[in-house]
Nucleic acid binder design. Structure first.
Lengths: 147, 147
DNA sequence: CAACAACCTGGAGTGCACTCCAGGTCAAGC
DNA sequence: GCTTGACCTGGAGTGCACTCCAGGTTGTTG
């Protein structure tokens, strides 16, 4: 009884996770990954549960959780199921930050869209002519030009 | 005929824009801000159009446009209305990236929510007991524990 | 079993976006 | 007019998250 499930070389792992080999080693050094299996010769062999875990890390990094916090999360995981309440707490706090990030981006997107629309309007109203100008009245500036 | 509109000191400007004085000076050095008015003694006085412009910069930074790109945008603004098509183009490209960012965050948020829900389920099903464990079947790992 | 790619380690280097500092100048209130 | 806090400049320093390197070992392929 064996068939020890898929073992991935560093290159395969990197490829599978969309993360560089160097970053993988860096995460390991930082204590974000638990001890990775090795071949007799000392080369790493990643398991599919390693893949799953790195995917979680990637999700957290995508959402700008600092490495320091990910380390804390990793430690809580190492502590086993007793630490689940703390892990849940950490994720709930982070979740709130992600929601804020999305809101901030959405707001910025609206601003950008507005600006694009303004440019479009200018380009439409003065297709060839180049004498007229300006978009926002940039209150205060006198030599106001479109930004 | 004057009433030269509001002039802000560096501290007021920083406060108004939600950006530090140092960052404001840094942006100026980097060519993101056009020459700022000065008092006879050489101290900066920001106009409300400076505020408007810095708000745009802030919006772009919020959405992770690199300083280098903001510099390019600032240059296009300096070139006047002839450069509006290029400015619009730059913004459209950036807009697409912002949309991608939002999508990525949204996806990550779903993952986080899923994880939180899993933890909640564990905590609910085993309120005091600590013998049962695990969440995801972490395929492959044998000593699988909840992550 | 030779050759060559992939991997190993510890440590140094990079790029980005600020942020801070020293040593001096300016300006507003008393 | 003097004090005190805000401001000036050029340049150095910081924190973060990687990323690269040298010099050596492993593992696979013909």
């Amino acid at each position: 009884m064996s068939d020890v499930a898929e073992q991935l070389s560093p290159a395969e792992m990197a490829d599978r996770c969309g993360i560089s080999i160097d970053t993988l080693r860096y995460y390991e050094r930082e204590g974000l990954l638990d001890t990775i299996e090795r071949t007799a010769g000392g080369q790493r062999r990643y398991s599919s549960s390693d893949v799953a875990w790195v995917m979680i890390l990637r999700c957290l990094r995508t959402t700008a959780l600092p490495i320091r916090e990910m380390k804390r999360f990793a430690e809580l995981v190492r502590q086993g199921d007793d630490a689940i309440p703390e892990r849940a707490q950490l994720l709930r706090e982070h979740r709130a930050e992600v929601v804020d990030q999305i809101a901030a981006l959405q707001e910025a997107l609206d601003t950008i869209d507005h600006k694009i629309a303004t440019y479009a309007a200018i380009l439409e109203s003065t297709p060839v002519v180049d004498t007229l100008s300006d978009t926002t009245p940039t209150l205060g500036g006198k030599g106001a030009r479109a930004t």
